[in-house]
Design a protein around this nucleic acid. Structure first.
Length: 478
RNA sequence: CGGGACGUAGCGUAGCUUGGUAUCGCGUCUGAUUUGGGUUCAGAAGGUCGCAGGUUCAAAUCCUGUCGUCCCGACCA
């Protein structure tokens, strides 16, 4: 095989150029394509199907926890956006604004939603009158637009798909609980669906969402040592409620402002999944999120009986509830193996004349490459077992990587060394913004979160030498 | 938004310095052959050289602008 062919048939190795590997996988696994506007991508069927799996899981969990889906307009009058000061200041630099309608200028220009807090508040102001109207637990699936300067498929787009929950509560405590509860739903998604261990915690004031009192996040560590903020939940207090005049009559007959949360995850989760699990042969998808869970590749397909047997295998998997594909295309088996590995299908079934004779099939696991021979009549049971094993192996591998890349640092030299190498630097922090800024200046890393399990391991802040009680994770971020 | 690289058929590319009929591989199509890790052989189709101007008898090639991708910064849920 000459040089051209090698280049053409395969993707950049992770080791050579991780960013290029990522782009190659996105394109060659047919997850997306670029459009003619920078930062706006086409979600191709295979990529969109991954998002649909994430949606299916979350939508079920949201409904189980009492939430209802709604749909808000995609445009926000600029005047409405101005109501909450911190919020508009945070988002103004990245808004896309429409100011022509038909052929006439629009007096109050329309902001294409970068997030929908103000739309929900504007509506809540009209429908919340009494404590009996609370809580309001709304969610919407939509896309938002943020005019980003640097864009990358799934990781940072000018437009991306997401869900945004917006809730209103009678009491502060109930709202605070909601913000933490939804963060747990996201953690479950990571563990049970995406096989990604998230680091969870609270954001520093510097990093929190514009207008929120508290921001919590799920952070995932990528193989290049950078952290990816993969989802956030926010507790707002009643700041927006006051700004938007949302009032209800309480049980005591007095008027009060309700307490608010919002929370969201986006198609960035697809990017996280690609990076956390992928390898030099392409995508590696966890079974729960894979659009195709089992691919059946017949060998010597034109020999009598092979295709018939392969169709039976396909049907049995389908009947057992699997998302299964029979690849009866006119390609060689070797080509198909590589193709479906690129696309990350977790389990491959090989079936040829030799297997038919022996009444067996061959499983191949995408995550380890392992091949397992299995009697035909135990096929589904074995697949059920392998599905669990694969999920577990993938999660544990990612978890091990995470644990190996959290390092306690006690001075600035150690901090620098850890952040240079990649991963999280766990540091004691005095809580001062100045020290957080200093770390960024020295290392370009940012505070990812204050982990929930705060176990102090030193007394002083490495930046200023003052007393430190907070444990914070720093990392370079996407 | 600053610095750098790149843009030629679906994909990957040669040609550009020194202007003169568009190069090769993969893929695609046709037929045969093969099938347990990207089969083999034969034949065929496929291009406004990212886009827009300019210089010239003549532009993929030179000049200007613009759009896009990647990298490094800055910025950013």
């Amino acid at each position: 095989m000459d040089n051209n062919q090698i280049k053409n048939e395969s993707i950049t190795r992770q080791e050579d150029d991780f960013a290029q590997w990522y782009t190659d996988v996105c394109k060659k696994a047919e997850l997306m394509d670029y459009s003619s506007v920078k930062g706006f991508i086409i979600y191709r069927p295979y990529g969109y199907a991954i998002w649909e799996q994430i949606q299916n899981y979350l939508d079920r969990r949201f409904k189980e926890t009492g939430h209802e889906n709604v749909y808000m307009p995609m445009v926000i009058p600029e005047s409405l956006f101005q109501r909450e000061k911190e919020h508009i200041e945070g988002f103004a630099p990245e808004c896309l604004i429409a100011n022509i309608g038909g052929n006439a200028p629009i007096d109050d220009p329309l902001i294409i939603r970068p997030t929908s807090e103000v739309l929900f508040c504007d509506h809540y102001q009209k429908i919340i009158k009494s404590y009996r109207d609370l809580p309001k637990l709304y969610n919407q699936w939509c896309s938002v637009v943020r005019w980003e300067k640097t864009t990358r498929p799934f990781l940072r787009g000018a437009e991306f798909l997401w869900q945004e929950g917006h809730t209103m509560h009678e009491t502060e405590e109930e709202a605070r609980t909601e913000a933490l509860k939804m963060l747990e739903v996201y953690e479950d998604l990571g563990r049970d669906v995406l096989a990604i261990p998230f680091s969870t915690g609270r954001k520093t004031d510097k990093e929190k969402f514009s207008g929120a009192l508290e921001t919590y996040s799920i952070e995932a560590l990528m193989p290049d040592g950078k952290a990816l903020q993969s989802g956030t939940t926010h507790y707002f207090g009643n700041g927006f409620a006051k700004a938007f005049g949302i009032q209800f009559q309480g049980r005591d007959g007095k008027l009060a402002n309700p307490y608010q949360t919002s929370w969201g995850v986006s198609t960035r989760l697809i990017g996280a999944t690609i990076m956390v699990h992928g390898d030099d042969n392409g995508l590696v998808l966890p079974p729960e999120v894979a659009p195709i869970q089992v691919v059946v590749v017949p060998v010597a397909m034109n020999k009598p009986g092979v295709l018939t047997a392969a169709r039976e295998v396909e049907k049995k998997f389908k009947d057992a509830g699997y998302r299964v594909k029979l690849d009866d295309s006119d390609k060689s088996p070797g080509w198909k193996f590589s193709e479906w590995e690129m696309k990350g299908v977790p389990l491959r079934v090989e079936l040829g004349p030799r297997d038919i004779e022996k009444g067996q099939i061959v499983f191949a696991k995408r995550n380890t490459g392992e091949k397992i021979i299995c009697p035909l009549d135990e096929m589904i049971e074995k697949a059920n077992e392998l599905k669990k094993v694969i999920q577990k192996e993938m999660y544990e591998r990612a978890f091990k990587y995470l644990l190996e890349h959290v390092t306690e640092v006690r001075n600035l030299d150690e901090l620098n060394a850890v952040l240079d190498k990649g991963g999280y630097a766990k540091m004691m922090w005095c809580g001062e913004r100045a020290c957080e800024d200093k770390v960024k200046e020295l290392t370009t890393a940012t505070a990812r979160c204050l982990p929930f399990n705060q176990i102090p391991f030193a007394d002083t802040c490495p930046c200023c030498g003052k007393k430190a009680e907070k444990v914070v994770l720093f990392a370079k971020a996407y």
